[in-house]
Design a protein around this nucleic acid. Sequence first.
DNA 1: GGAATGACGATAA
DNA 2: ATTATCGCCATTC
Length: 105
Amino acid sequence: MDPEEYVEAVLSLVERIPEGRVMSYGAIAEVLRDRADGRGSARRVGSIMAHYGGSVPWHRVVAANGRVVPGHEREALRRLRGEGTPLRGDHVDMRAAAWWPPDPR
DNA sequence: GGAATGACGATAA
DNA sequence: ATTATCGCCATTC
């Protein structure tokens, strides 16, 4: 599979994340692991978002521990607050904001 | 081809 | 809560 396709898969999934919710890099990797190819790892997703994430709501993608995107914390937090995402200070409340795509099965 | 790198993750101290 | 390490694995030197 061309890396381009994996990128598409990641971006389209990120676009499906509802407002007020977030997904961790690891979660995205895990979901794509079933849909796209056998691949899937947090590092890959992060790397892809870094290069191609400019066209999707990247602020809805956070680290598994709720930490927002490094280098864009100010911007991300601002948008998340605006969307009503459950925040706990400067990090996302994963317990309440974590979202998974509807299970097709 | 081998080493370094990276918007990660889990665990240990 | 924070820092340090190790594991992951494709991409990029």
